[in-house]
């Protein structure tokens, strides 16, 4: 039985963790031993064990964001040994298991770093900039009511699939964290693409692209230089093809005259 009988092979690790008491407090790396760690633990369960021991020893546990622990809520996310969400492809920190590490390893754990994601405490950052990018136009205006029958609008399967690929974004911020420019292009582009390939998304397509791109800039994210780090870090494997779509839509939108008031943009 692979993977289920490995409790015996427990590991001893050394953690180097960023600790910072509050947003404006100074921070630094603090070392902690993490002994008797089972390879079947998730990365966050390993942190739970360390925290339990810290608490029992009268120290403050390491603060980190987490919630669903099944890779879909997007709450968790830390830099693990210099990679967003750690070494496994298409895997959030909560789904990363300790079998990816070996006995004696040293693990560096840091918060996402971006001007637009200020540290709140320890490994927790404020990602509300993402919400504001969505507010700028990441939606289809369809107030609750009685729209037409759902099947009145057939959508080609490839379009629906492409929309879904991009809608799979969990808003964790790994793309920003991994980008050498701390750019939010992949996040923004994924939403633009999700809505741009659906017929329902057409009426607001131009205003959406302009407004979201400009909000992304105003929030203090960097620009895209196509390093490709974001799509590797993305736990949902969203392709940087989305960024091409965003640029195309933005160029088209800039060439189109926008009626006054139609555009709730930031400028």
């Amino acid at each position: 039985m692979s993977g289920t009988s490995s409790a015996a092979k427990s590991m001893n690790l050394t953690l180097h963790v960023w600790r910072q008491a509050a947003a404006h407090a100074p921070g630094g790396i603090v070392d902690y031993p993490a002994n008797d760690i089972s390879p079947d633990m998730s990365f966050l369960e390993m942190l739970d064990v360390v925290n339990e021991r810290l608490t029992e020893g009268g120290q403050e546990p390491i603060a980190f964001d987490h919630d669903c622990r099944e890779g879909i809520c997007g709450s968790c996310g830390v830099m693990i040994n210099g990679a967003a969400h750690g070494p496994m492809k298409a895997t959030t920190a909560c789904q990363l298991h300790m079998r990816s590490f070996s006995d004696g390893d040293e693990i560096w754990i840091e918060p996402w770093r971006a001007k637009a994601f200020p540290v709140v405490k320890d490994l927790i950052v404020n990602r509300s900039a993402f919400d504001r990018i969505i507010q700028a136009g990441g939606y289809i205006s369809a107030p609750t009511g009685t729209p037409q029958d759902a099947n009145a609008l057939p959508i080609r399967k490839p379009d629906a699939d492409l929309a879904m690929d991009n809608a799979a974004c969990i808003g964790c911020g790994a793309c920003v964290a991994a980008c050498p420019n701390a750019s939010a292009s992949l996040f923004t582009a994924a939403k633009i693409t999700h809505l741009a390939v659906l017929p329902q998304g057409q009426p607001e397509r131009s205003t959406r692209a302009r407004s979201m791109v400009e909000t992304m800039d105003l929030e203090g994210f960097g620009g895209c230089t196509l390093f490709g780090e974001c799509q590797v870090a993305c736990p949902k494997e969203i392709s940087i093809d989305a960024i091409m779509q965003m640029n195309r839509d933005y160029i088209m939108a800039s060439a189109t005259k926008v009626e006054l008031g139609e555009w709730a943009g930031s400028a």
């Binding site: 289809i140 369809a142 009685t146 729209p147 329902q200 998304g201």
Partner: peptide, 9 residues
């Protein structure tokens, strides 16, 4: 109907 109108894929 509502969800499709919102763009749920």
């Amino acid at each position: 109907d509502q969800c499709v109108a919102q763009g749920v894929p």
